[in-house]
Amino acid sequence: MHISLKGKTALLTGSTKGIGFAAAKGLAEAGAAVVVNGRTQEAVDKAVSSIRESVSGADVKGVAANAGTADGCNAIFDAVPDCDILVNNVGIFGPKDFFEITDDEWQQMFDINVMSGVRLARGYLPKMKDRGWGRVVFLSSESGLNMPPEMLHYGFSKTAVLGISRGLAKIMSATGVTVNSVLPGPTLSEGVASMLQDDVKERGVSLEEAGRDFVKAHRPSSILQRPATVEEVANMIIYACSEQASATTGAALRVDGGVVDSIA
């Protein structure tokens, strides 16, 4: 299968590193004009330069804005009035005891993980519908189905994303616009790597070994028995953004290594 997105513009939130960066690089390799987003100009410039260096002829630019706020989303709209592909990737996570999670932390999780995608979809979907073509991908998580007791606020936000994605797919019915969610499982992104650093230092093991041990201890239902790479997750995102995915909509596309114990 050859995926070509030449002539399409793709905006990816939270794409200066991790899964978002891998997806931005992959979409640039597929020929899309890519817009990288992050909170700081320094991080955005670094990501843009990295993609240009690794993808010959890449059409890539950046927008520094906090997509987790209404003002940040408005700044993105000002810089990128229209796009063909929207990847709502930006998100935060972190373990915390339910009884210690403050109201402000619940609100922050909701604003960044949920409302960023709501605001941007609300702004970009009408033009996609008018053109008769568009792709919207929300980054959910296996935690949206397999609720993690160690970070309930995160799992809740990813369940909300699943509901919004499915509902928007119905709203876009028969328009040529697809809306899907991608559900990664444990993934060896920079954020997860940082979370595992104490274990790496204390036990003197490699990051990969610490990742495998984490999966076995905390996601024992995993069939893969290791974290995915960011590129493995990005491959699913890129497919969902492609012409070839025209009959895939309203779907929850799992890249969880089989963590969710379901045959569906």
Rank of each mutant, 00 (worst) to 15 (best):
M128Y: 04
P227S: 10
I19P: 04
K170P: 00
A79L: 00
V230W: 05
R52M: 11
C241G: 12
L168P: 09
A193W: 02
A70V: 12
T187N: 02
G72V: 01
K17Q: 13
P220I: 02
R135I: 03
G155Y: 04
G176K: 08
A23W: 06
C73P: 10
R135W: 09
G176L: 03
V87C: 08
P227T: 06
D198N: 15
V114K: 04
S15C: 02
A174M: 13
F93G: 01
D213S: 07
K46Q: 13
D78R: 05
Q197A: 08
E208Y: 04
V255E: 08
P149T: 13
A23F: 04
M151I: 08
M151V: 07
V136Y: 05
N74A: 15
A245W: 08
V118S: 04
V230Q: 08
F98T: 15
G72F: 01
K158N: 10
I112V: 15
D59W: 01
V182W: 06
G18H: 02
E232N: 02
Q41G: 15
V60I: 11
S50M: 10
L5K: 03
D84V: 06
M172L: 11
M195Y: 14
Y124R: 02
G18T: 12
T249E: 05
V255G: 12
V233G: 07
M109L: 09
Q41R: 12
V179K: 10
R52G: 15
I101S: 12
T175I: 06
A33I: 00
A240P: 02
A70E: 15
V182P: 12
P148R: 07
V177D: 12
V136A: 08
Q41T: 09
N180I: 09
E100C: 09
E100S: 11
G31P: 09
A43I: 00
A10C: 07
V233K: 05
S49D: 15
L188Y: 05
V48M: 13
K129G: 00
K17T: 13
G38S: 06
D71P: 00
V177C: 14
Y154S: 09
V137D: 14
M147E: 09
S206D: 01
V179S: 12
